[in-house]
Write a protein that binds this DNA or RNA. Structure first.
Length: 255
DNA sequence: GTAAGGAATACAAACGAAGA
DNA sequence: TCTTCGTTTGTATTCCTTAC
């Protein structure tokens, strides 16, 4: 029958295959919080039978359930005459599940806040622009209602950075409460700590190129950030540089 | 002499903060 | 809510050194 939904069940995933194309204005990468009926007759029938919560809530619900269970968000693939929503079974973050459970015990969270927190918990640390991208939002103004309540509730914090440097992460207390064992990353390090780290490195290794310094400290830190801090350290007369270009080396200033 | 590689710099873009 | 300002980042380009 035209309009039937086919469900393919595989060991690692479940695929919901819906005949037809995505509605106008909706793309494979833009399907979250869209209230567009793909099949009006079926939608009306399911709604009348109380089998459907409300229009356009299906994908949002999939996001909520998947993220609550530490799994990836649904992947949408549009074929020539069908649209497939792929829901993976694999859990990608057991730690994120603990965080979500602990947060739910402490607060009553709305669906959008569960989705937002789930994305942050899985990422560990995520920039505002990346969050906007993953939530399929227009700009940071649209992000506010998703993020602000989480900040107000004390579930999410920032790294005190500015502009592109702002990273959102789950508050450390919540991570401790949920026995989080995720990886620590230097991506969130404050500039003054990075400055001390560079001084410590120079103390240990002596004259060094900026590239080697970057490798030892961690590639997750951009070389431009290290470059700027070295420039400040030279201005403060704490570091000196010798040579030029490829033979340029940085070292602690002798007093 | 030339190619490759490293570092510095210029510039555009992004984005939060502050003020109107 | 909008605009402006300041800060930071990523990318492209340029300059210089080194290796062959």
């Amino acid at each position: 029958m035209s309009g039937d939904i086919f469900i393919n069940i595989y060991p690692d995933r479940v695929e919901f295959v819906n005949p037809g194309q995505l509605p106008l204005g909706v793309t494979e990468n833009n399907i979250l919080h869209k209230s567009v009926k793909r099949n009006e007759r079926m939608a009306n029938l399911f709604f009348a039978l109380h089998l459907m919560e409300r229009e356009g809530s299906g994908y949002d619900k999939m996001y909520e359930v998947q993220l609550t269970n530490g799994k990836r968000v649904p992947r949408v693939v549009e074929g020539e005459d069908s649209v497939t929503a792929i829901v993976e079974r694999r859990i990608v973050s057991y730690e994120a599940i603990k965080v979500m459970q602990t947060a739910s015990q402490k607060f009553t969270l709305k669906q959008k806040h569960i989705i937002c927190l789930g994305i942050i918990a899985q990422a560990g640390s995520i920039s505002g622009s990346e969050l906007i991208h993953q939530l399929e939002l227009k700009d940071n103004v649209a992000l506010r209602p998703w993020l602000r309540p989480l900040l107000d509730m004390g579930l999410v914090e920032t790294n005190d950075g500015k502009t592109k440097n702002v990273e959102y992460r789950v508050v450390s207390q919540l991570l401790r409460d949920s026995d989080f064992k995720g990886r620590t990353t230097l991506k969130r390090i404050e500039p003054h700590r990075l400055r001390e780290l560079i001084l410590e490195d120079l103390k240990l290794f002596g004259p060094t190129s900026i590239k080697d310094l970057n490798i030892r400290i961690g590639k997750e830190i951009g070389i431009r950030s290290i470059q700027r801090i070295l420039k400040n350290l030279i201005e403060d007369e704490l570091v000196v540089k010798t040579g030029a270009t490829t033979s340029l080396r940085y070292n602690l200033a002798t007093k």
